[in-house]
Design a protein around this nucleic acid. Structure first.
Length: 535
RNA sequence: GGGGGAGUAGCUCAAUCGGUUAGAGUCCCAGACUGUCGAUCUGGUUGUUGCGGGUUCGAGUCCCGUCUCUCCCGCCA
């Protein structure tokens, strides 16, 4: 008999009854009746009930055993009597009557409850990640991620892509995020950088003639964390194709994503082809290059309607370079006055000077703006923005970048509070035609807006002949529910060993100090900031 | 770097307007129990209310400082 197991904890059924079996796993739950003891023993595959009878010499030790101890149990697999079958468990028709019990590893009281849906404190979860990962929700997330990645690999291979590893130790590039640096021992004072993305390598693979490359690529960026962004390192699906148009790339990605989502996602999603949104249009309608299309609200540019209107606040601002954007509130007329007051206050919190609005209710149009607009103008706004009886229309007037930022926020807020946001769905789209350059709002300097390694539309000629701000790039993002899919997603739930918000690995103790000897070899002398006074 | 929120038992949380000995569940410890499956029942331990200072007859509660966590902005080609 195998020293650890003849079966796993999830596979025994009534057909196995009568055979002598051996299982190994963790004690998940314990039910102690004093003269009868039940364990549920758990492994990756499932749970099986173990019965300990009081005449066994290991019975008393078994009673004292804590949860999460690791055991190997051998005995007869028996059918449960009909009244004791547990229909909730796949193995609930049988149980293992223990004849031998080996304590592989006896557990101390644990800092985390494995048998719980309640998350403990973040730092405890990260410090004892190997315990956190035993919890079923997290365990199944990690398994799902592994299956998704395997599915992506298979689909990419079927599309004729080959997977190549690219270097981890490379050179620092001036663009983009802050680099992680690795000091060179052989070259004093010089550093490697960890790649922020394998961008240049993949293009060189095309230059070398491999035609289609992909990689589940490690990327390293030394930037601060966000709730939806793990600091330090993450993986992304990276691909490159030779002699391909933008549409060729979209076709591959759409096929891979829709295939993976059909297989693994429970929620519905829009089928390919995914909508293509030019960057400029996305900014105008959604205020962002990462629109959440589950919210069926679109802004419209109504600057011209207010340029010579009697509403001096707007027309004066427009003369000063401001734009006016209208944001529909479908069904908002039914909301109480406090709804509008709160929305105005929120807009002001975001930095808006105000938030004017019109409300179509009971055949009339109400709101502070009505006296500045003619009946025809109001009808024109209603038609342009697709609003009518029962709806409201909000107006933002500010510099374009502020209108975008505030409008994007209000759009999502309206979608949720008015109940028009699609629930439990994935909405994909492409954002295309990114500008090649942008102006730094502080300094006015022109720099690459997104990715310096993309091709300008119109080629080198465009770079020479067009105004820099007018040059578009063959540069695109795929966006789902307002999240950029190129990047990482929802971290601590799908990454096996994540770092905390301060980019520390509490379990391994990284980053950590190193010995003087190591520093000497690397020709490094720390120049530390003054220590904070300790309390 | 800037702003908001939070911090009470190992864990999840409660504690009225500032009021007397800071509670409950869980975990842990001891005991009872032969069919449970989140076993049940009885009893018990567990606290610098993050830390320091202040106001007050009296502070978990109010004020100031500080630390930690968290969210947002900056940053993220």
């Amino acid at each position: 008999m195998h020293p650890f197991r003849t079966h796993n904890c999830g596979e025994l059924r009534k057909d196995h009854a009568g055979s002598r079996v051996r299982l190994s796993g963790w004690v998940f739950r314990k039910r102690d009746h004093g003269h009868l003891l039940f364990f549920d023993v758990r492994d990756h595959y499932g749970l099986t009930q173990i019965v300990l009878q009081p005449d066994r010499d290991f019975f008393e030790d078994g009673r004292r055993l804590r949860m999460e101890s690791v055991i190997t149990v051998t005995g007869q697999l028996v059918l449960r009597s009909p009244d004791t079958v547990n229909p909730e468990m796949p193995t609930g028709e049988v149980e293992l009557v223990a004849e031998e019990l080996i304590f592989e590893s006896v557990s101390e009281p644990l800092p985390l409850a494995v048998d719980s849906d309640v998350d403990g404190p973040e730092d405890t979860r990260l410090r004892y990640r190997y315990l956190d990962l035993r919890r079923s929700r997290l365990h199944s997330n990690i398994v799902l991620r592994s299956k998704v990645i395997a599915s992506i690999r298979r689909r990419m291979t079927e599309h004729g892509f080959m997977e190549f590893q690219t270097p981890i130790l490379t050179s620092s590039s001036p663009e983009g995020a802050r680099d992680y640096l690795v000091p060179s021992r052989i070259h004093p004072g010089m550093f490697y950088a960890l790649p922020q993305a394998p961008q240049q390598f993949k293009q060189l693979l095309m230059v070398a003639g491999f035609d289609r490359y992909f990689q589940i690529a490690p990327c390293f960026r030394d930037e601060d964390a966000r709730a939806d962004r793990s600091p330090g390192e993450f993986y992304q699906l990276d691909l490159e194709m030779s002699f391909a148009t933008q549409d060729d790339v979209f076709a591959v990605v759409e096929d891979v994503f829709s295939g993976v989502f059909s297989k693994f996602a429970r929620q519905p999603f829009n089928r390919p082809p995914f909508p293509r949104l030019p960057y400029a249009l996305s900014m105008e309608r959604y205020g962002t290059d990462k629109p959440d299309l589950r919210v069926p609200i679109e802004m419209r540019n109504v600057t011209e309607q207010f340029r010579n209107s009697g509403f001096k606040i707007f027309s004066a601002a427009i003369d000063g370079g401001a734009v006016v954007r209208a944001l529909p509130g479908p069904g908002a007329a039914a909301q109480p006055r406090s709804f509008f007051d709160k929305l105005v206050a929120h807009a002001q919190d975001l930095g808006s000077k105000g938030l004017a609005y019109l409300v179509w209710a009971n055949g009339n149009v109400k709101g502070p703006l009505t006296k500045f607009l003619s009946v025809d103008q109001i009808a024109g706004l209603s038609q342009q923005c697709g609003v009518g009886e029962g709806d409201a229309l909000f107006f933002l007037c500010d510099r374009a970048e502020d209108v975008n930022r505030i409008g994007a926020d209000l759009r999502l807020r309206l979608g949720q509070s008015l109940g028009v946001m699609e629930q439990d769905a994935y909405r994909f789209c492409w954002i295309v035609d990114f500008p090649m350059f942008e102006k730094d709002p502080e300094t006015g300097a022109i720099g690459f807006s997104h990715n310096p390694f993309s091709m300008p539309q119109g080629g080198l000629q465009a770079l020479q002949e067009q105004a820099p701000m007018d040059v578009l790039a063959y540069q695109y993002d795929i966006v789902c529910n307002g999240l950029l899919l190129a990047g990482e997603k929802n971290i601590r739930e799908v990454i096996t060993f994540p770092m905390n918000q301060k980019a520390q690995d509490l379990m391994m103790g990284a980053p950590c100090e190193v010995s003087q000897q190591q520093l000497r070899e690397l020709h490094i002398k720390p120049d530390l900031p003054p220590a904070k006074p300790t309390a």
